[in-house]
Design a protein around this nucleic acid. Structure first.
Lengths: 373, 373
DNA sequence: AGCGTGATTGTAATCGTTTTCACTAGAGGT
DNA sequence: ACCTCTAGTGAAAACGATTACAATCACGCT
């Protein structure tokens, strides 16, 4: 039987030597766990009633209790005794044991790059809702666009043996995605290299940026600038749509790439505007950048849209509240989350299915920030 | 030894018959898992290399591998062989097994009521950061102010055997908190009944609301109304501060309690304003309500602050961008998250310590929305 | 030579479940 | 009466790690 145990190696389908072994040691001796001390030594929280206690209490075997918990065949009389025993002992099944034995975790990992970005919280909610419906749990990991944390969380996903993962890789990682997967079904969201072999659900970034530019052109703007995030493929694709549409109109496409954070966007906008010749309209490649841009404009007392038109991505609730309202691309956040989960489930059912890339369209919401009257 | 196993029952300190046994069955046959089918049957994701494979590959015992992974005594030569074997096999430790055996999960549960509320995402980030530093994981659960989901997630915390929990209870639950705890260290955040026996870190809601009212009074406003959330103790406490401060000034305190959602706040505000006699100033008890209020005002073309002054809670990034800027109470979100984790760690170390309630002060940021010039 | 001592290593028990397997009892067919 | 079948039950073997315990070995001391 030992032989059989080792044979598994030859038949298991997934490669999982993605995260090198070096990392395997930090779990117990984490980078800074020393600073906290060891508050978890004789953690009594796990010393709880087990299925044995219930069995003893009900006068049946543990197998019967287990079957009563699940949907196994148990006579009505015993089932009732078991339920009473459970109530009496205050028993709660131990998920670690359950997962270990049953070999599936009913857990999906959700790895996002910035939980404070409303786009990701909206998607998270949709994912969590879908997981709830399917009776699965989600582990939410926030990488903060930090490759070190990203690597740690990716490793965590392996160690948790998640059933699947929904993942928004930073651009650093985008190029390094393991060619034959992580060892479990994975769906990329929001960001995805052009040629990638993963399931993915993304916005039609090229088209969406193009829409914004076309709208500005239609409004008569000719000097149009753009501020784009530099940590994701998304920023690059939006820039492509922006630049190509302007090029097609025979216009230049002044561009700055920045960290996708409010502060960076604010100072970049300020620098740009005080630098003398500034554009008539500015495009922001996501909600954070848009917020920074508006803040800079506000501090400079620049009138929107009369002195400068503004358009951007992400229809966050506040965008219709500021100034004359902001013209934005609305992303179908719920649909993105749901579709990602659907894709995940499909891949679980059919692991060999070729990768599918679902491209959703954004909706352009025109408000006052881009309309000269 | 079987005897010993059952003896645990008599010595374990926590009561855990909080969630009745009825619920214990829904794990495998969740409410709607049937609609999804059973995509997890022969989920091969867990068929991975185990510590045995590594041991075989390195020519050592599993115990040695385990010791090499941790900090046990292993000779340099063997340690090297083990590391090589780990790299060669692409081994990742199985957290379920590890947790089951070692009896602690290094996991904290974070149960919040609305992940889309920037207050909670900010706190989440702080909690997650602290957990990361302490080499722990966090399970984020979003109850959406829904008692059913809340019960489910509370049960999940038990089943996961979390090391601790940080928890923002809905008002429904606030009164039903188990008197002797959940079975693991728990810290309440944001919401906490006055007399509760749990560790907690909350804002000084009474004082904060009072500050806002005093500011309005100082600005000469006399007819001041308030919109408060009805799902949490927080809303009630802020209302108390609001009402009492007005009463002290001999003024009435017209109030409406609503669901703490943007839409509800919008329609409540609209109704109030079109109802004829409306106040000169309005207070919103959280960021969502504030947003709804501003949206309603915008649609009614009501000038802030000339026709109506506005103040509220939560210094979200957009509040300084809309209209003349919104006067708000800023909550120390990072400090709340960190303090909650500190409290959790302390309680883990000293389970018998009396409950501590930490009250943090908000900061009043005065902007144009409450200043008549 | 004999013997404690300390450092490494392996063997085996254990954590709390699920699941295979064998067994029983009763129903029903001949 | 005998055989077959099925449903209900318990005993015991996993799952993959950690850890108590025992065994080995080299070493220094008497």
């Amino acid at each position: 039987m030992a032989l059989f145990s080792y044979m598994k190696d030859f038949i298991h389908v997934y490669s999982n030597n993605f995260c090198g072994a070096k990392h395997a040691f930090t779990l117990r001796s984490g980078p800074k766990s020393g600073t906290i001390g060891q508050p978890f030594e004789n953690d009594p929280s796990l010393t709880m009633t087990s299925i044995k206690d219930v069995a003893l209490h009900a006068g049946v075997s543990v197998a019967t209790v287990s079957r009563a918990l699940g949907n196994g065949p148990v006579s009505a009389a015993l089932r009732e005794r078991v339920e009473a025993a459970i109530a009496a002992t205050g028993y709660h099944p131990n998920l670690s044991a359950r997962r270990l034995r049953s070999q599936h975790t009913r857990t999906v990992g959700l790895v996002v790059s910035d939980i404070r970005n409303p786009f990701f919280t909206a998607v998270s909610r949709a994912v969590e809702e879908a997981a709830y419906q399917a009776d699965m749990r989600v582990i939410l990991c926030n990488t903060d666009e930090n490759p070190e944390r990203e690597a740690l969380y990716l490793r965590l996903m392996q160690e948790e043996r998640v059933s699947g993962m929904i993942y928004a890789p930073t651009s650093t990682m985008s190029n390094r995605l393991p060619a034959n997967g992580f060892g479990f079904p994975t769906v990329l969201i929001d960001r995805c290299p052009e040629d990638c072999s993963y399931d993915a659900v993304v916005l039609d970034n090229h088209e969406a940026a193009s829409q914004l530019v076309q709208h500005l052109l239609a409004q008569g703007y000719r000097h149009i600038g753009g501020l784009f995030g530099n940590t994701s493929t998304t920023g690059a694709q939006r820039h492509a749509g922006f630049a190509e549409t302007l090029a097609a109109a025979g216009l230049p496409a002044p561009t700055r790439f920045i960290a996708p954070r409010t502060e960076a966007a604010e100072s970049a906008t300020r620098d740009w505007l005080v630098s003398g010749q500034h554009p008539q309209a500015l495009l922001a490649s996501n909600g954070q950048i848009l917020a920074g841009m508006v803040r800079a404009l506000r501090n400079l007392r620049t009138q929107i849209p009369h002195e400068l038109a503004v358009v951007g991505f992400d229809n966050e609730p506040w965008t219709e509240l500021v100034g004359p309202g902001l013209t934005v691309i609305e992303q179908p956040v719920d649909e993105i989350g749901q579709t990602a989960m659907d894709l995940l489930f499909e891949r679980m059912k059919t692991p060999t299915r070729p990768a599918r890339r679902i491209v959703l369209q954004g909706r352009c919401i025109v408000r006052g920030s881009s309309i000269t009257r």
